[in-house]
Design a protein around this nucleic acid. Structure first.
Lengths: 157, 157
DNA sequence: TGATTGCCCATGGTATCCCATAAAATACAG
DNA sequence: CTGTATTTTATGGGATACCATGGGCAATCA
């Protein structure tokens, strides 16, 4: 499998009155490079967030499902959980999408949505909740690596 | 094998007084892309649901049957189970189908029908029953994906 | 002929398309 | 390197097309 350009960094955009959000331009480029002006999204199973990705990400999910015996229970579980709950959202001419009400509620998003790159995919969070999660992640990472330096705020260069 | 657009996500539509249900527009597109304004359906053998798909799915079933020795028992079992109970339903001008009474009863569908995408095919459920099944699938999947790595069968690199 | 099935039109609501504008990023010239 | 021109982004809002749904009517069949 070819190495695809990863989703990186965090962007916070506004959710307008019609429920639309601009997908960050950087992310848009990656999505289109994968061959579609669309993204795929579902509720995260591990937190108040929406997990999303492009065609490649979705094909990977599909492959994961198809790899199991279609008459087996594992196949069905995967299909219900991964495909049955994933929605395809196409971008409008300006690069916006309208997330289903239910997904926004799961993430607790109201006026602002934070897009955070996770490499092969990305997530959408309520901005403050994401900050909390990130702080926790920084701590855990520093501990694991054993070199707990004081948080240098940002640029690590 | 070319990658076909998969059936994704869940849509709940109303069953009208005449027993008609709108097939979700997204699903319709996929069906038509496969070359027919029709779908194929039969009762699920693993739950209170109707299994359905388009031409490609049908061809796949057919191939599965044809792969066995026509004089053998397996061939006949498959044929009776997979082909003998499958009905072809054509969509009306507005993209609706009328499911046979028996299928609806098997799925326990009355006023509302939930279409859930399963990749190469889709299923029709009674909405609440589907929610229950999905909740279970999410649990099972989270456990499987969380604890296990995918079997090192296929070279994933 | 009564019931069923398929075909056609009507409609409210929603999502998409399209244009406009302000803010930000980038390119460019001096 | 600094101020300005040009191009992208993000956002707002009106117009439009599509979708799910309901009902009428004609053809079909028992």
């Amino acid at each position: 499998m070819k190495f695809a350009r990863p989703f990186l960094s965090t962007f916070v955009n506004k959710v307008d009155a019609k429920g639309r959000v601009s997908v960050p331009a950087r992310f848009r480029d990656i999505l289109e490079a994968q061959g579609a002006r669309a993204l795929y999204a579902r509720a995260s199973t591990s937190g108040p967030a929406v997990v999303a990705g492009g065609l490649s990400w979705m094909e990977q999910l599909h492959a994961e499902v198809a790899a199991h015996d279609p008459s087996g229970e594992v196949h069905d579980d995967f299909a219900y959980a991964l495909l049955g709950d994933t929605v395809e959202l196409s971008l409008d001419g300006e690069g916006r999408v309208g997330f289903p009400e239910e997904l926004m509620r799961h993430a607790g998003v109201e006026g602002l949505a934070a897009f955070v790159g996770m490499g092969a995919y990305f997530e959408i969070w309520e901005p403050r909740a994401l900050e909390v999660r990130k702080a926790q992640a920084r701590l855990a990472t520093a501990e694991r690596r054993g070199k707990l330096r004081l948080p240098p705020r940002e640029g690590s260069r």
